[in-house]
Amino acid sequence: MSSTINLDVFFSAQSFQENELRNKSVVVIDVLRATSTIVTALMNGAKGVIPVEDMGEASRISQSVDSDNYLLCGEKDGTKIEGYDLGNSPLEYDRETVEGKTLIFNTTNGTKAIKKSLGSARIYMASFLNLSAIVSSLSAEENEIVLLCAGWKGRLALEDVLLAGNIIYNLGDGQLPDDANDGAKVAYGLYEKYSDDIRSVIFQCNHAQRLKNVVGTDDLDYCCQTDITDQLPILHDGIISI
């Protein structure tokens, strides 16, 4: 990573104030599972994803749209919300289900991080699934970059920090500038320590343990895959699309 690239990492959606993102390009990371699911939905032909902060906002939007072209999607504490079409498992978002649809999407951590980033210059969605596409785009980014880990209810989520570190590592061809911000140093260091077996480390993470008890391990296996797509989801006027 060139020392001319100004990059920082926030470790949860509660670890910053909105004005800290102004005029910056934000990369939202919620490996388990929101950004992985968004990437998958768009890969499988979804028209767009509307992130919402809570069930009230989701309900208001759903009442004003054509139900034939929209799906109400999301989870609370890992479990699909009653009455929703889909939960937050990327495996639910196959082409037959989502192609041509716009998704109203509400999750415990990921969509809150997205909504809190609305004052920034640009908002990307990153997962291991589209890692190289994110790195390629960021390498040409002129704005200051913030890697925003969604975390879990205000706490650090190791899987998100590992992806942030992986992005930093790839941007710098394995080198970290001496003048890197503290957040970047922490993420880079954790990735360097655990890079030999990311999948096993993620399976041991606190949030992965919670999800195992709710949905099993299939989602974890899926979200640990790297570069299965070159999709680059970006938020435009309240809708995430490619």
Rank of each mutant, 00 (worst) to 15 (best):
E159P: 06
R199Q: 15
V135Q: 01
L171D: 11
A133Y: 03
V201S: 07
N130M: 04
Q204H: 13
K212H: 06
E142S: 11
I134V: 15
N166G: 00
K153W: 00
L148H: 04
Q204N: 14
T217F: 06
K185P: 04
L162R: 03
D196N: 15
E159Q: 02
L129W: 01
N181L: 10
L156I: 13
K185C: 13
A187V: 06
G189H: 08
L176E: 13
E141M: 08
K185E: 04
E159D: 09
G183K: 08
S127N: 02
V215K: 05
Y194A: 11
N143P: 07
I123K: 04
Q204C: 14
K193R: 14
N181Q: 11
L163H: 08
L171Y: 09
R210V: 09
E192H: 11
G154H: 03
N206A: 12
N213Q: 14
A140M: 12
V215D: 06
P177H: 10
I168M: 11
A126F: 06
I167R: 03
A187P: 01
V135A: 04
E142C: 03
A208Y: 00
I134A: 04
N181Y: 06
A133R: 09
S139I: 08
R155D: 11
C149L: 04
I198S: 13
Q175G: 12
N213P: 01
V146D: 05
A208H: 02
A126Q: 04
R210N: 10
V146A: 07
D179M: 03
G183E: 09
E192W: 08
L158G: 03
E159I: 05
L131N: 05
D173N: 15
L156C: 04
Q209F: 00
D178P: 05
D196I: 02
D160I: 04
E159S: 02
V201E: 13
